[in-house]
Design a binder for these strands. Structure first.
Lengths: 95, 95
DNA sequence: CAGACAGGCAAGCAATTACTTGCCTATAGT
DNA sequence: ACTATAGGCAAGTAATTGCTTGCCTGTCTG
C-alpha cells in the first residue's frame, strides 16, 4: 500500500480529490472532462489514469468496473488514520 | 507557503516529524545524530537541513536561533487544517 | 587570537516523477 | 459485423527531487 501523503502531494491529485468530494463515483472520462473544463488542467487521459492509480494504491480511492466504465469512489479514512497517528501523539507532549 | 502534503510525502521527513514528536525543540545536529543512530538513516547534515527547510516552508516547523544553534519546534496545525478542509466536506455527501 | 563547533550557500549528480505517444483490449450501439 | 466508446499497457522524455561535495560565515572556548 502506497503512502497517503505521497499520493496527496501532487496538486493535480488534490484537485481530483476535490472533484470526487464534490461528485463521488465519477468515471475516468468524466474526471478528465471536469479537470480540463472545470479546473483548466489540460492533460492526457493516461496522465489522469496514472494519478488515479496512485490514489487507489494509497487506499484513498476504491474503484468499480461496470461494462466499459470504471467508477471511482473516494475514501479518506486512510488519510484520517495517518493524521490521527500524529495528532494523537501531539496532545500532552512537552512544549 | 509550501504544500503540507508535499512536505510530508518524503519518508525521511516523516521520521523527522516522529523524532520531533518524541522530543521537541531539537537542534539540527541532534536531529542528524538521532536519525542515524536511532533510525538507521545515514545522511549528510545538509540533506537533513534541506528537509527541515522544506518542513519549515510548509509551516510544520518553527525555528529559533540562539547562539550557534538552531532549534526546531513542531507545529502540526497546518496539517490539521489541510485535512479538516477535506474531512468536513466529506460528511453528509452523497455516496 | 586560534581552533573547534553549529550551521548556511550553491553547484552538480542521480534517481524519481509527471506526462506523453503509440498501440492494444473489451464493451456498447447501429 | 462494423464502428465508436471507455479504458489499459509500456516505452520514452523532460522536469523535479533527494542527496552530495566543497567552501564560507558566525559563535563559543581555550
Amino acid at each position: 500500500m502506497g503512502d497517503v501523503f505521497k499520493a496527496l502531494a501532487d496538486p493535480t491529485r488534490q484537485v481530483i480529490v476535490d472533484e470526487l468530494l464534490a461528485r463521488d463515483g465519477q468515471t475516468l472520462f468524466e474526471i478528465c472532462v471536469r479537470l480540463t473544463s472545470g479546473h483548466g488542467l489540460e492533460m492526457s487521459r493516461q496522465a489522469v489514469s496514472q494519478h488515479l492509480d496512485l490514489l487507489e494504491e494509497a487506499g484513498l480511492i476504491r474503484t468499480e468496473r461496470r461494462g466499459r466504465s470504471k467508477f471511482h469512489y473516494l475514501d479518506l479514512s486512510p488519510l484520517k488514520g495517518a493524521v490521527e497517528r500524529w495528532l494523537s501523539k501531539e496532545k500532552g507532549r512537552q512544549k
